[in-house]
Amino acid sequence: MTRTRSDDLQAKRQEAMGVLSHCQTAEIARHLDDVAVPDHEQLRAPEDGLVMLRGRIGGDGAPFNLSEATVSRAAVRLGSGEVGFGYVLGRDGAKAQLIALCDALIQSPCYAATIETQVLPPLRARVAAERKRKAEETAATKVDFYTLVRGEG
């Protein structure tokens, strides 16, 4: 039972991180503005570093090191003890910090619902709309090639 609940919470955190990582820093900050964010401390000040990105040989085979990407990370602890982590592509420490804060709030029984109902839905919708727009533009370039049969002799 506990196991299911913690798996459930982990899936929620991952989904939220996935959405937030695709958002602009200002966008996340704007939606958090409406939340009465509780006291929290910086557990790890924002820090830039690298993550080695791995591909797979042939797309689905053994892994190989492709190249690195810049990543920013931060960690936050709420007064009530929840620890949130932010890891995101790029060198935007403020963004990593905001993601860490959201991650901590999602784990807090007092704030989880607020984040889930006020912060994430508009961001989720914006990211989905962006994906949809790209898919619609791409679909317009779908092509039907046909081969011409060579004439006899």
């Binding site: 570093g49 690298l50 080695m52 990105l53 791995r54 591909g55 689905d60 990370r73």
Partner: peptide
């Protein structure tokens, strides 16, 4: 820059 680690292998079948 310091290296934090290595990513999970990227799945190109899931590419948008």
């Amino acid at each position: 820059l310091p290296r934090f680690g290595s990513s999970e292998p990227i799945d190109t079948a899931q590419m948008q």
